[in-house]
Structure formats: structure tokens, C-alpha cells
Simulated assay, not measured.
Amino acid sequence: MASTQVQVDLSLLSMRFRPLARFPQLVGGLLLYGASLALMVRADLGLSPWSVLDQGISERFGVSMGAASALVGVAVLLAWLPLRQRPGVGTVANVLLIAISVDATLALLPPVEGLALQVPLLVAGIALNALATSTYVGARLGPGPRDGLMTGLHARTGTSVRLVRTSIEVCVLAVGWSLGGTAGLGTVLYAVAIGPLTQACLPFTAVRVKKDLCP
């Protein structure tokens, strides 16, 4: 009987620390995500909609790309309040680590010129972004601010996720472009490729858990 109790206690302890074991995957995914954004910035052929906004804010107000990303992330988190979304550790880490990573990568990676370098850099950035997205989402430690906004609006309005996401990204893209962000071929390629690529990566990165005692 005592042995059974010890086994149960150890099992509960293991379940309690499962999220902690997934934390390195979360951190790695977010750092890679920031690096992927920096690759697309250096390619200078068009960014993802949210990065167009970040870059526009960076250009208009003279802050770094990472700082702009963090400011947008905090603003989006404030928009969660009326939507009654609950952040996780991954949500906070998303704001901080992506900002640090994108600025660090931009500092290390100089601008490039010529399509022979720009196109491969763009493709690498999009592919790495998909892998990074599936990695941090697969850790299951809380949605990013932008993902939570999408799911929150979907839950509150009953509108399809596809329509909510498209509407948000069109608005974000328009505002970012008006502020001076770069939209172009890379923006279109990102929109077409990121979904299928992320879906293809998820089976290899998603953590399969039955139930965690702490989120």
C-alpha cells in the first residue's frame, strides 16, 4: 500500500513538472522566431503583416525593431482584457524573447544587396519562421499575444478563425505600411506559405500531454 502511494506521489510530481520540462522548447522556439523575422528584414522583400507594423513603428518613432515588437505585444495583451483571455508563461516570454532575438540577430547580420542574396534569405526566414512557430506553439505553454487576440475575438464574436485572422492582419498590414513598413513579394509569399509549412512541422514539435496539473 505504501509503495502504491509513493508511486502515485511520484506520478503527480512528474505531471506537475512537465510544463517546466517544456520550457527550453518554448525558449528555443521564440528565439528562432525572432531570428527568422530578422532574416526577412535583411532580405528587404516584404515582411509578415505584424512585422510590417513593427518596422513601421520602428521607422516612425526611432526605436529598434525589437522594442517596437515588444510595444505592440504589450498593446495587444491589453486588448485581451475585455476578451477575458488568460495569458500563460509562454505569452509573457513571447513578448520579451522575440524582441531580444530580433534585435540581436539584426545587430549580427548586416544588410544584403542583390536578389541572389535577398531571395534565399527571404525563403530561409519564412521556413525558419514556420519551424519556430510550430516549436513554441508545440510547447503548449500559452499563446502569443497576437494568437490570443485572434482566438479571443473568435470566441467572443462567433466569427470564423480564418475571417478573424484575415481581418486583423489586413488592418495591421495597412497601418504598418502607412507608417513606412516594408510590404512586397515577401509579404505575399509569407501569407501563402506559413500555414502549410507550420502545419507540416507541428507533428515533429508538438508535445503530447494528457493532462497537466499546472498550465
Rank of each mutant, 00 (worst) to 15 (best):
G34R: 09
L37P: 02
M40K: 08
S48T: 12
P49S: 03
S51K: 10
V52T: 04
L53I: 09
D54S: 14
Q55P: 07
G56S: 08
I57G: 07
S58Y: 03
E59G: 04
R60D: 08
R60S: 15
F61Y: 15
G62C: 09
S64F: 08
A68K: 09
S69Q: 12
S69W: 13
A70F: 15
V72L: 14
V72W: 07
V72T: 15
A79E: 06
L81V: 15
L81T: 14
P87Q: 05
P87F: 08
G88H: 01
G88M: 11
V89C: 04
G90P: 03
V92F: 13
A93W: 04
N94R: 01
N94T: 04
V95K: 03
S101I: 05
A104M: 12
L109M: 14
V112S: 05
E113Y: 12
L117K: 09
V123M: 14
G125A: 09
I126R: 02
L128F: 07
N129E: 10
A132Y: 12
T133I: 05
T133N: 13
T133S: 12
Y136S: 14
V137F: 13
V137N: 02
R140D: 15
G142H: 12
G142E: 08
P145A: 11
T151S: 02
H154V: 15
R156K: 03
